[in-house]
Nucleic acid binder design. Structure first.
Lengths: 340, 340
DNA sequence: TTGTAGGCGTTATCAT
DNA sequence: ATGATAACGCCTACAA
């Protein structure tokens, strides 16, 4: 079933059929109706390959989602869809696994689909350094700060990760905690992890509290299991603490389990706080205190920045959106004890 | 930069260049070297659109994943990748949201990418009835029984959902529970939900236990929130029960929270069991009892069945793989009380 | 408003 | 082993 068949069937020429299908002007209402009708009832579908082979540009906005199963991304994607639906642009969503280069993928898709701009949901600066120069249309990375990257067409909108961690620690300190262990990602690999760790240290420093990474920090991938292991490791090391800050909710969940297995109750014996604001968190017992990233705001700003770039050629910018501290059941006020 | 340019540059004809680039036979080693070399140093990239437009078939196996964020699917996908990597086939993975027709998507991709076969991770029989007839290559649906569908090229490999539910209920009954509430999906919409509900009723019937769907069953989408709501609703209705069976782990988590908010502890006051075997389950407090679907086995059989279909033309088949009951902390033995 | 024809970059089918 | 050439399905001038 090609437009040729459709042409035959309706008695019109392929040119007319093509124009009707694409909503171009210069097609009589009658012809349009007939053709669209015929297309519908014969289940006709344009062949994207042929279409894009000929096309020099589309009116699509590409969204590359790196990290299937990331709830925050799902939420943001919904917002993006809502925002873009109100414009004349189409959305082209590409989900991909963690283990591929999102930039390489985008480069290929740009060649093949010729979008007007790209939104990256997640991404790592290394990949951008490596491959991004092949892309020359406006792009924006969401949840990952790209301000240090030397690309004039690459914007970013993020939560201030350093500040997130700092305020989380401040919150715990305000509740009387003095010895707070931290678990998170590998600061030498991930920018986000580094920033969150630095934020913690800012807070400790501001209060003159001791923090020794070797003693008080454990790193791993963001997963239930690594959170569990990190906490186990902290406990076994004999380190004393009244609270754990996990740089990701998933790790916090694993940590709570590890605490429990060692006879430590949350929040009775140890307070726990995560980061991300996973929906899951408010269904846990106890509800997980966390720093909620505003997915809606991130997504909205991302779209706005991209559209302005596309339409008005505004230069790249790097923004930050507010976040929210959610004090929840996993957090408890304690008597501040002198530090040891 | 097209193969024409490459041809010009190397002095060969486009046909030769194309063959060299694609590793086809009938190309002299010398020509191959020269052409590949030239391609490399000029950064040449084949235009996928043009390629796929012209190509009559590829050696790709298409995997359509419906339901981003489904951990079971992620696990299966890894297995599939491992299995296919050992063959001469390439994998083409397409993730999509819940709200699109996986079959319509597959139809389009088949037309455009010409794969040798398709693996569906998740899917609904309605969509198959509607659109599948346009696909004539071997396909296999995983986690969804397609044996009732009238397609000779469509296999399926599933966990026996009815049996899963039956055994889950049996497990609870064996622990002394007589009044078991059930929460799950809408049986009129989802086959899986219907089968799981039927499995429950099988078990109740076998033991002569009363089960009234209006009183003891609550339906919703598989989500934390709907699990929470379903349990709240059960509790508020005044219905008495000593256990809840949730047809999905995510619902079980929500249900546990709802119980807790109503002063009911798990497993002290109410036992809870889910289905799926989410990794999360073993990090919860209490660890969530569940029925573990064997993702690896599902995926492996899926690939095996598909490959045999492709290579040997074996007819479609419908298989089942074993599952495992995980008795965990959320389950408690109680004194069997007379039913009310 | 509609029809016709050329071409997008590639592969496939011939002939050489 | 290589070269020439016709498709693939669509879009887009341009002609009618």
């Amino acid at each position: 079933m090609t437009i040729k068949d459709l042409a035959q069937k309706t008695g019109y020429a392929v040119g007319t059929v093509s124009r009707a299908l694409n909503g171009h002007p210069n097609v009589s209402p009658k012809a349009r109706t007939i053709i669209l009708q015929a297309a519908k009832e014969s289940g006709f579908q344009l062949n994207t390959n042929a279409k894009q082979l000929k096309q020099t540009h589309s009116n699509a906005i590409l969204v590359v989602v790196k990290g299937v199963g990331n709830e925050l991304f799902s939420e943001m994607l919904e917002t993006i869809q809502r925002c873009v639906a109100q414009t004349r642009y189409q959305l082209l969503v590409d989900y991909m696994d963690e283990d591929m280069s999102e930039v390489a993928r985008a480069v290929r898709l740009c060649r093949e689909r010729k979008p007007l701009g790209v939104i990256f949901l997640g991404g790592s600066n290394q990949n951008f350094n490596k491959d991004f120069s092949a892309i020359d249309i406006p792009c924006v990375v969401v949840t990952n700060n790209a301000s240090t990257l030397p690309f004039a067409n690459l914007s970013s909108v993020t939560t201030d990760d350093r500040e997130v961690a700092r305020q989380a620690i401040e919150t715990m300190i305000a509740l009387g905690h003095r010895r707070i262990a931290v678990i998170g990602g590998d600061p030498t690999i991930s920018d986000t992890s580094r920033l969150r760790l630095e934020g913690c240290m800012d807070a400790f420093r501001a209060h003159g509290l001791p923090f020794d990474t070797a003693r008080d920090y454990r790193a791993g991938r963001y997963s239930w299991h690594n959170g569990y292991e990190a906490a186990q490791d902290l406990i076994r090391s004999g380190s004393r603490f009244t609270a754990i800050f996990a740089a990701a909710d998933v790790m916090a969940v694993g940590a709570i389990r590890a605490l429990w297995e060692n006879g430590l109750r949350v929040p009775r014996d140890v307070s726990v706080m995560g980061v991300d604001g996973l929906p899951l968190g408010s269904y846990l017992v106890p509800q997980l205190a966390t720093v909620i990233q505003d997915g809606t705001a991130l997504a909205k700003r991302g779209v706005e920045i991209l559209l302005r770039s596309i339409e008005e050629g505004t230069p790249a910018c790097h923004e930050t959106v507010p976040f929210r501290i959610a004090r929840r059941e996993s957090l408890r006020r304690i008597q501040a004890q002198g530090e040891t």
